Deep mutational scan, measured.
Amino acid sequence: MDPFLVLLHSVSSSLSSSELTELKFLCLGRVGKRKLERVQSGLDLFSMLLEQNDLEPGHTELLRELLASLRRHDLLRRVDDFEAGA
């Protein structure tokens, strides 16, 4: 399986429902409101961002910004580990 997708799945499974709600709010300018209403998990949101090329294995800035906004430094370390091994 693609290591970047494994990372996104790992991050998604670590998010609380309130954190997902916050991420959806933060992505309002990037993803349409109707699409965001269908998001049920972090993976749903990340999939939309992947489709729009806002997220890519070599383009993790948005993911970092979102996780920093949540103050999830543990998840930021996972992104660091991914990039160190990528």
Rank of each mutant, 00 (worst) to 15 (best):
V79T: 00
H73T: 12
C27N: 05
G29C: 09
G42N: 04
L5V: 10
D54H: 12
G42H: 04
A86C: 11
L49Y: 01
E37S: 11
M1P: 11
D54T: 10
R72G: 00
L8I: 06
E61Y: 09
N53Q: 12
C27S: 07
L20A: 03
L8M: 05
L36S: 04
L55F: 11
F46T: 01
G29L: 05
M48G: 04
C27V: 11
Q40V: 11
M48V: 12
V79R: 00
L20V: 14
V31G: 03
D44E: 12
E22W: 06
A68I: 15
S69F: 06
A84C: 14
R38T: 14
L15T: 00
F46C: 03
F4Q: 00
V31F: 08
L50S: 15
L45N: 01
A68V: 14
A86W: 14
N53D: 13
P3V: 05
R77P: 05
S13K: 07
S10P: 01
P57Y: 13
E83N: 09
A86Q: 14
L70C: 09
F46E: 03
F82N: 00
L45Q: 02
S41W: 03
V6I: 12
D81E: 11
S13W: 04
D2Q: 04
S69Y: 09
L8A: 01
D2C: 04
L45K: 00
L62T: 08
E37M: 10
L43G: 06
T21V: 10
S14Q: 13
V31W: 04
L28C: 13
D81T: 09
H9I: 07
A86G: 15
C27W: 03
K35Y: 06
S12R: 02
L7N: 02
E61L: 09
R34N: 13
L23F: 01
G42R: 03
P3L: 07
L7I: 03
S14I: 02
R71S: 11
S41P: 01
D81W: 06
Q52M: 11
E61T: 11
S18I: 10
H73I: 07
H9M: 09
M1N: 07
L75T: 02
D80M: 08
D74F: 00
E61P: 06
P57K: 11
A86H: 11
R78M: 12
L70M: 06
S12W: 01
L20Y: 03
S10K: 10
P3M: 08
L43I: 13
T21N: 11
E51S: 09
A84D: 14
L66T: 03
T21S: 14
D54Y: 11
S14Y: 03
L23G: 00
H59D: 14
R78A: 12
T60Q: 03
D2N: 11
D80G: 06
E19K: 00
V6H: 15
R72F: 00
L36P: 02
L66P: 01
L67T: 01
T60S: 06
L67C: 08
V6F: 12
L20W: 02
F4C: 02
E37C: 09
L49C: 03
A84T: 13
L36Q: 04
R78Y: 08
R30W: 07
A84W: 09
E22A: 09
L62H: 06
L70T: 05
R64P: 01
N53I: 04
L15I: 10
D74R: 01
L55A: 06
D74S: 00
E83L: 07
E37L: 09
L76K: 05
L70W: 00
F25Y: 11
D54V: 12
A68Y: 14
M48Y: 10
G29Q: 12
S18K: 14
L7S: 01
V31Y: 07
R34Y: 11
S16M: 04
L7G: 02
S12G: 08
T60C: 13
L76C: 08
E61S: 10
L76D: 02
L28G: 13
S41A: 06
G58R: 08
L55T: 06
L66S: 04
E51R: 08
E51D: 11
E61G: 14
G29N: 13
R71E: 14
T60F: 11
R64F: 04
M1V: 07
E56G: 15
R64I: 05
D80R: 07
M48E: 10
R78E: 10
L66M: 10
G58Y: 09
S17W: 07
M1W: 06
V6R: 15
Q52S: 11
H9D: 13
E22V: 08
H59C: 12
V79G: 00
S16G: 05
A84Y: 11
N53S: 10
R77E: 12
T60M: 09
P57H: 09
S14C: 10
H9T: 14
P57E: 15
E65Y: 12
G58C: 08
L45S: 02
M1F: 06
E83V: 10
H59L: 04
E56A: 15
N53H: 14
E56Q: 13
L20R: 02
Q52N: 13
D74N: 03
E19D: 07
H59W: 04
S13V: 11
D74V: 00
L15R: 01
S12V: 04
S14R: 08
M48C: 12
D74T: 01
L66A: 05
P57W: 10
D81L: 08
Q40L: 08
L23W: 00
E83G: 05
P57L: 09
F82I: 02
E51A: 11
G29E: 13
D74L: 01
S41T: 13
A84K: 14
S12I: 03
L66D: 02
V31C: 14
R71I: 01
R34I: 13
G85M: 11
V39C: 11
V6M: 14
Q40K: 15
V31A: 06
C27T: 08
R38C: 10
D74W: 00
E22M: 10
D80C: 06
L70Y: 01
S13D: 14
L76F: 02
K24T: 04
L8D: 00
E83Q: 08
R77F: 05
L63H: 03
R78W: 07
L70F: 00
L62M: 10
D54Q: 15
G58V: 05
L63P: 02
M48F: 11
D54A: 13
S41D: 09
M1Y: 06
V6Y: 15
L76S: 05
D2T: 07
A86E: 14
L28D: 15
S12F: 11
G32W: 04
R30H: 08
D2P: 04
R72D: 00
S16C: 06
E83A: 09
L26H: 08
S41V: 07
V39R: 01
S12T: 04
R30N: 06
V6T: 15
L36T: 05
L75F: 01
F4L: 05
H9R: 15
R30A: 06
S41K: 08
M1Q: 07
L20E: 03
E37H: 07
L20S: 02
S17A: 15
E37Q: 09
F82E: 02
A84I: 11
S41F: 05
S16Q: 06
G29H: 08
L50K: 07
R64S: 05
E65W: 12
T60D: 03
D2M: 04
M1D: 04
E19I: 03
S12Y: 02
V6D: 05
R78N: 07
R72A: 03
R30D: 04
L5D: 14
S69I: 07
E37P: 04
L49A: 02
Q40A: 14
L15S: 02
